[in-house]
Structures are given as structure tokens and as C-alpha cells.
């Protein structure tokens, strides 16, 4: 069956594939570097700030806007989306396997409701006037 697959690929295809893989590797290093452990989650709706919440406190936050409603849960220092009115429900899956987001390079994004949840206030960043000690000293900070 795979005999037919021969004689299709050209040299330029492989060059393109190689370039894309290099690009992938480079962006992965940028995206998955171990971020600083943050202290607060910042919620934005349609680019405007909705509120910031401490990661230390277990809480359930209702995010209501014209675009829809989301329920953000903070549990054991990690934040995840527990309910959403959006049709695709992608946000409920994001970072769910790790228990939620807690580092500064992680986000929860609900595109239909235009909700962006990000972590900020790590040990090196300014904490927006909130005086809290950032959680555990982070491991594997430098790659």
C-alpha cells in the first residue's frame, strides 16, 4: 500500500519540514520554560481587567460579562476553570491534568467569552502592592 506513497516527496518539502520543526523547538523552549511561581491570578475580560485573586486562598470566582459566564476555582494554590457557558468548553480542559495554573507562563483562555486568566506576581515580578510571600521556592527555574 505504501509503495504508492513513493515518488511524491521533494527536497524542498523536507527543508520546509526541518525549518518548521526548528521553529517548533524554539517556541517550545520559550513557551514551556519553567515560569516563576506566582502569587495572584489576574482575570481579564475582553482585554480589560476584571479582578485579581490570591492563589493562597481557596475560592470560587464567578466571572460574568456580556459574553457569558465562567466559574474559576482556586484550590491548593492552583486555579482552573470549573464551569463555563461557552459552546466549545475548551477552557475546562486547560491545565486540568496538572490541577490548574500556578506559574507565570500559564494561562486559561476562554475565547468565546473573551476571558483570559493568567498568573502574575512571582518572586521576581512586582506584586501590585499585595504583600504576600510567594509560595514554594521554584524548582528548575533556569533551563
Amino acid at each position: 500500500m505504501f509503495k504508492e506513497w513513493k515518488g511524491i516527496i521533494r527536497k524542498a518539502d523536507l527543508v520546509l519540514l526541518f525549518l518548521i520543526l526548528v521553529f517548533c523547538a524554539a517556541t517550545s523552549v520559550w513557551a514551556y520554560r519553567a515560569g516563576d511561581t506566582g502569587s495572584v491570578v489576574r482575570v481579564e475580560v475582553d482585554g480589560a481587567e476584571y479582578g485579581t485573586y490570591l492563589l493562597e486562598e481557596d475560592q470560587v470566582i464567578e466571572i460574568r460579562s456580556d459574553y457569558g459566564t465562567n466559574q474559576l476555582t482556586i484550590q491548593d494554590g492552583k486555579a482552573f476553570m470549573s464551569e463555563a457557558s461557552c459552546p466549545d468548553q475548551y477552557c475546562l480542559e486547560q491545565h486540568r491534568s496538572e490541577g490548574g495554573i500556578s506559574r507565570s507562563n500559564q494561562t486559561l483562555i476562554c475565547l468565546p467569552n473573551r476571558v483570559v486568566v493568567s498568573v502574575s506576581g512571582g518572586s521576581s515580578e512586582d506584586t501590585d502592592g499585595i504583600d504576600v510571600i510567594a509560595g514554594s521556592p521554584e524548582q528548575g527555574k533556569d533551563l
Partner: peptide, 9 residues
């Protein structure tokens, strides 16, 4: 739409 660059993660 979301005005977030972080989406490129």
C-alpha cells in the same frame, strides 16, 4: 480579540 499576547503560548 482577547488583546493578550500570551495566547501565542
Amino acid at each position: 480579540v482577547t488583546e493578550t499576547v500570551k495566547i501565542f503560548l
